[in-house]
Design a protein around this nucleic acid. Structure first.
Lengths: 340, 340
DNA sequence: CGTCACTCTGTGAACGTGCACAGTTTGGAG
DNA sequence: CTCCAAACTGTGCACGTTCACAGAGTGACG
């Protein structure tokens, strides 16, 4: 005769109750750390839980509690950018770490096409998540409306211009740009330009604003090259443009590390040495910064911290705490290396 | 008098039934695309669903069906590597895309410390996920035991040596290494060496094996520099070692793009031109490959495809289909650029 | 002793769904 | 017309939990 091992069924709260000789209610109180349980019952139940290997059933709990213990992590970027942008990975890790610690699970939702927008909107409406972390929402992003309509606890990383009352975490791009430009001025450069990128986003516009702040009356609009994206190739083009306008340029603030890396390439082609002839600084402190030759001086983006702060913000709302309406801004230390 | 807007409760299957004038059972059949529903009832129910805005309650469904419609994505790497390794992001996206399409959600679980191991093990035991995708499991990884014990449908990305019967997806490192080495030989190089890294992992060992395969009788053990990790700095060291042993070396297979980038650095310091004096090829087709000067010829790792295949594999098991026991190997096209 | 507050425990009713089963209608074959 | 299978529909139960409530016990106080 062959004994087929019965597919081990999971222990329920009822099994624990029987094992400990108490009722379901008391076990529930122990599991949820509620008061009004005798010490004797508590120890017996804890032993029983250990013995039968009880793990609470999340589905049953969600059903009765009307919540899912999950938070959505929505990335509204094409797949390619997701891979290229080291910040997103850091934000994801930061958020995941904080959520895990609070026994929440994180569900990643990547929106690439319009089809995805519908899917994610439906998903959010379905009550699968108790809150939402939105990364890089766009101007007029339909997701913002969905989140507002559902009155879902949310935190935005970054700050789309039409975001009204919703809480967000971010960095002060303007202040950071100003700080690193001042630092660049401090090295004695006389003709300082900027390669400004992504001016249609607030991050891009703010970095340019910080740059002009720092230069004050010495600001020369001719020394600003405007390029569409935060990319290497746009950095190459921007630098070429600057060199054409001002061959005597000796300092450059690139709107991102990738842009700075492109600028370095253009400078090398033009036979300029860095930091000898030209000092250059970037923004992000991404992996680019360490891979260039020389390594970049740049502004550190606290990606992990941004994700963690966003998660804390959502958890706070879930606990019913009021959140600061004007958003949370994180520190951005300047990392000074060899490029300026 | 003030009317407080009632917190809109979610419509249930019962509301739909009332609206359409049928019973819950029939609505359930429509929602789950089951047969034995009259055309009349079906259209009425579909209209009712639209009208009341019904979305099935996942928790209730999970409870009764005994499954969660979620798949865990477990990354066993320190946070820093997670950020550095572009493959992981691609795998994540590939898996996420396939799972979303099948209406599964993906839960990311990052294991960094031992504390995390316990947490994730508990999580898996809790029935929160129906299956698991494991990325970069280690030799003797405790997670493997947990997954085996729970008999959880799983797919591994990569192939830890002690993985017995569990299905995996990966690439044929040996064949790929052989192919790109042959290609390098084809460019007319006579003295070809390798910077071999991570020989304690099967990927590292296999790449070395493929290299020796390709060279056959011309293989010279002296022309292999062994370094611990797939990193830039190890690439620098490995190349220096090779130049010391064989100053006349004119071809190098670096075990990864990061290693190749380091090798380029060392060659530049030594005053060698690439590809003039030395041809060099990498492995991975990571962002490194495009950021070096000249751009790297390398082996493309189909990261997105690996994630997608792993997800398909898990979904297949969930559907009760048999999976190939010997794993799935994906194609690795060679990308020929300027470095050789 | 009665009353009250407080601590502790057990019980039944939800939560929203799928499924088995029992019932009803329909239509075709004998 | 009878019989029977097939097509369709409704109903009760189960899933595992939390929560409100009822009830029991204990001690303090008047």
């Amino acid at each position: 005769m062959v004994t087929i091992p019965a597919r081990r069924k999971r222990a329920t709260i009822h099994d624990v109750a029987v094992e400990a000789g108490v009722s379901r209610g008391t076990v529930s109180r122990v599991v949820n750390n509620e008061p009004y349980v005798s010490e004797q019952a508590r120890t017996a139940i804890e032993a029983a839980i250990e013995k039968v290997g009880y793990v609470p059933n999340n589905a049953a709990r969600s059903l009765v509690m009307q919540r899912s213990q999950a938070v959505g992590f929505i990335v509204h970027e094409p797949h390619s950018l997701f891979l290229d942008d080291p910040n997103i990975g850091g934000i994801l890790l930061g958020a995941n770490t904080v959520l895990s610690r609070a026994d929440y699970q994180m569900v990643s939702l990547v929106i690439d096409s319009h089809r995805d927008t519908d899917r994610v909107a439906r998903y959010l409406s379905g009550g699968f998540v108790d809150g939402v972390i939105m990364v890089s929402a766009r101007h007029e992003d339909p997701m913002i409306r969905v989140v507002e309509k559902l009155a879902l606890p949310a935190a935005f990383v970054g700050h789309p211009p039409d975001l009204r009352q919703l809480p967000f975490v971010g960095i002060d791009n303007r202040r950071s740009a100003r700080a690193i430009t001042e630092r660049l001025i401090g090295t004695g450069r006389r003709r300082i330009g900027m390669i400004a990128a992504a001016l249609d986003r607030d991050s891009g516009a703010d970095r340019l604003a910080g740059f002009t702040d720092a230069l004050g009356s010495r600001f020369d609009p001719a020394l600003v090259a405007r390029v569409p994206l935060y990319t290497f190739s746009d950095g190459v083009e921007g630098m070429r443009a600057l060199l054409a306008v001002a061959p005597d340029i000796d300092g450059v603030f690139a709107a991102s590390d990738a842009v700075a890396a492109g600028a370095l390439e253009a400078l090398r082609d033009a036979g300029r040495s860095v930091p000898g002839d030209v000092g250059i600084v970037g923004f992000d402190d991404s992996t680019w910064a360490l891979r260039t030759q020389p390594q970049l001086s740049t502004v550190h983006q606290p990606a992990f911290g941004l994700g963690a702060a966003a998660a804390e913000c959502v958890l706070g709302q879930l606990r019913g705490e009021e959140q600061p309406a004007d958003g949370i801004l994180l520190e951005t230390p300047i990392v000074w290396r060899d490029s300026a």
